[in-house]
Design a protein around this nucleic acid. Structure first.
Lengths: 329, 329
DNA sequence: CTGAAAGCGCTTACAG
DNA sequence: CTGAAAGCGCTTACAG
């Protein structure tokens, strides 16, 4: 390529990267010849020489769930526009997670890392910090990461208040996260909001109105079935995710009860199917969180500096057909 | 690292890759020291020297739709197990597609490429072939690619036959793909099966019973609305995807009709929400197609050779609550 | 079983 | 504005 154009490889490199220190004529000629020869810079060689990979690592606990697909979409969109590549790591279970943090395939492979909504142990966070690249985090918060999230407390508060304002008092809660829930902000914050709203409404907390899902439809269905066979039948349910709310809808209808006449249901996320199933829910911007974290990482790469303060994106209740005022039986 | 262990870099390289030509004691010592020093081989240097990237490129038209999320999951799962990395490219629209094939960011970056269910022009296929790496294709078929797919004709045939066997004759069709449908196997094959089954059942084809969706819920809803306002009201509908079937269900219920009493609906895919919405559908293995294509590419990388013949995975009808025998009105 | 040496294809001071 | 040269961190014949 270089001798074909009659210049040194250094000049080819500079021309193709658009550095200003190349004569316009030279640049044009080199670019033309590069096209003719179908020549591309070899990224590995470039990385080795410059230290920059122009690649971002994306670590996700799931790639085949709606929320994560949306965030991945958002991240990829921004990266592609800037000519960055995306290396995707899916670590859906404990063993793959352990293996990932042990092997750390990201080492010397990426310029920055984005982690999608998942609980990280201190040790895991340290491994990432040890990469010595900008770190982003979506959906939760942690020291040393550039965080993009929603205010889960505010979102869940508005959901449960929606129910109390409709007159409901026997409000059940389908929580997420199981035993690890207390260590992860999402389930913890949403649960806290549920408790606080009941408290402030003078209703008080009744453990028999809580059941654990795992952010899946099946989990929500199981949780709702358990609630329905309890001593107090709730007149309303707050599910920590739409997927669990969908499961709850199924369980309620299976039991012969009607929504919202007998039981109101509100979810969280505004999943693409919330509209289809006419589910009242709390909307959060999802792809946007992906966009934002990618943009922040690219900025950090360009300008250096510390991670900016956490960005909180707004949520709001979308009222649809699964909630209605309490009817006295 | 090398001098820390008192050996040459060549030996470190050999030991860490587990080559047999290293004394056991030496290998153990090197591996231990590597752990202590948190040392990892720099992939770019390795690539530059060896020509192997241990990275697969995955090109998808969508990353935030159920089908694609499942396939990506399947591909990633196999790659991770083998220590390969996954570079993800999402090209959802014409402009990003053009740009992708023009810039070809995969060049000199990956050992193999998997393309997920999307129509490729001759030129685009040639660009990929020009990469000179093993190529995989999921969901459709093309020369030069290792293909993993289902038999769309067989799947759609079983769907439409399910309706004819229930006595339906006014069977509508919600097709996918719009104007480009004829150039892509998925919509074309499924449409052909619809026509053929009607033919063989002596029913014949009526254009007013066909409407175009675009594989989305909204598209299916629009298509169904159009069908309902047509001259002939269908008693059954075959939608080319579950997402479109979900939209159809909505449109039908909005119009005051009941499913399956007034209209039977069958979809295609067995989407995770088909069960939730009690939709009769044609199940296809999705993550498995991702597993398979990844495995084939890795095999090709190891053994060289030509792409194996197309693998066809089985489909079958899952009968749920949205289809029932024709009732005479 | 191990090492010295060349080379993979770039980028980056340095010099002019 | 451009080039020569060193160097990035590996792998791979080749030799022993």
């Amino acid at each position: 390529m270089a001798n074909r154009a009659g210049v040194s490889t250094a000049t080819v490199s500079r021309a193709l990267r658009g550095l200003p220190s190349v004569a316009e004529g030279t640049r044009l000629r080199i670019v033309r010849i590069a096209r003719e020869l179908n020549y591309t810079i070899t990224p590995s060689a470039s990385h080795l020489a410059s230290g920059r990979t122009r690649t971002i690592g994306l670590v996700a606990p799931y790639v085949n769930r709606w929320f994560f697909g949306q965030v991945i979409f958002g991240v990829e969109e921004v990266l592609r526009a800037k000519g960055f590549d995306l290396l995707l790591y899916n670590i859906p279970d404990a063993s793959s997670r352990d293996r990932f943090f042990d092997v750390m395939p990201l080492r010397r492979r990426v310029d920055a890392v984005a982690v999608l909504s998942m609980p990280l142990s201190k040790e895991q966070a340290q491994v990432l910090t040890g990469l010595d690249v900008p770190l982003g985090l979506v959906g939760t918060e942690m020291d040393g990461f550039a965080c993009v999230r929603i205010d889960d407390v505010a979102g869940a508060t508005s959901a449960v208040r929606h129910l109390t304002m409709l007159g409901h008092r026997d409000i059940a809660h389908i929580s997420g996260g199981g035993p690890a829930a207390h260590s992860f902000t999402t389930p913890r914050d949403r649960a806290r909001a549920y408790h606080d709203v009941l408290e402030e409404a003078g209703i008080g907390y009744r453990p028999e109105l809580e059941a654990v899902g795992d952010y899946t439809v099946a989990g929500g269905e199981r949780a709702m079935s358990a609630l329905l066979s309890g001593a107090t039948r709730p007149t309303a349910v707050f599910a920590q995710s739409d997927e669990m709310a969908f499961g709850a809808l199924r369980a309620i209808r299976h039991s012969g009860l009607r929504v919202p006449e007998d039981i109101s249901v509100i979810g969280f996320d505004n999943h693409e199917f919330a509209d289809v199933l006419d589910l009242t829910t709390v909307e959060q911007p999802v792809a946007e969180q992906g966009n934002l974290v990618a943009q922040i990482l690219l900025d950090l790469l360009e300008s250096g500096g510390k991670p900016p303060p956490t960005m909180m994106l707004p949520t709001h209740v979308v009222v649809r057909g699964t909630t209605s005022p309490l009817r006295t039986r």
